[in-house]
């Protein structure tokens, strides 16, 4: 079951040297990737997508910070895409930036897409998606609470899991646990 070359997340199956059988999941996912990528670039221009790839059979795009909310709206309303069911939202603290990951599923078409946006570590901000998907309201509050990333135009930006007076953002890599 586990062939080594089918496991790489951002590999192009056609470029492998040995004639290994292509994993049908990667083929299907690559088709979805090119379809969505074309749609987004035709609507917003080439600069909208900073990185594109397959992460474990899920087309993943890093979207430019300013266009994040518009791209999400487009993905939801475009008749051939119809991504309407949010599945997950997460924030990760990398060394230079904080990244927001948002996975959304299309109940009509049956595939997922993940869009990411990056914000600065100090006073960075990312546009909110809660206007498009109400699901993001509390998830973004949690990312703000634990990582310190602000969300522009969020209706209710305050801490959700920790006390309002808490100092610092615990999920950051440089957070020191004080007692």
């Amino acid at each position: 079951m586990s062939e080594e070359n089918t496991k790489k997340p951002v590999a192009d199956p056609a470029k492998e040297e040995a004639p290994a059988p292509v994993d049908p999941r990667i083929e299907k996912a690559t088709q979805a990737l090119t379809l969505i990528q074309d749609k987004i670039t035709s609507q917003f221009g080439e600069a909208a997508i900073e990185e594109a790839g397959l992460k474990q059979f899920v087309p993943t795009f890093v979207i430019k910070n300013e266009l994040y909310a518009e791209v999400a709206e487009f993905l939801k309303t475009e008749p051939s895409l119809l991504f309407n069911y949010p599945q997950a939202m997460a924030g990760t603290d990398y060394k230079d930036y904080i990244e927001v990951y948002f996975l959304v599923h299309s109940t009509e078409k049956g595939y997922d897409v993940a869009i990411k946006a990056r914000g600065e570590r100090d006073n960075g901000s990312v546009p909110t998606l809660s206007g498009v998907y109400p699901y993001c309201g509390w998830e973004e509050r949690e990312i703000y609470d634990l990582l310190g990333l602000n969300f522009r135009n969020h209706p209710d930006m305050r801490r959700i899991l920790l006390q309002d007076e808490w100092n610092g953002h615990p999920l950051r890599k440089d957070y020191v646990v004080r007692d």
Partner: peptide, 8 residues
């Protein structure tokens, strides 16, 4: 016990 928000 090693969590940041728990009273020990």
């Amino acid at each position: 016990v090693r969590a940041y928000s728990v009273v020990k």
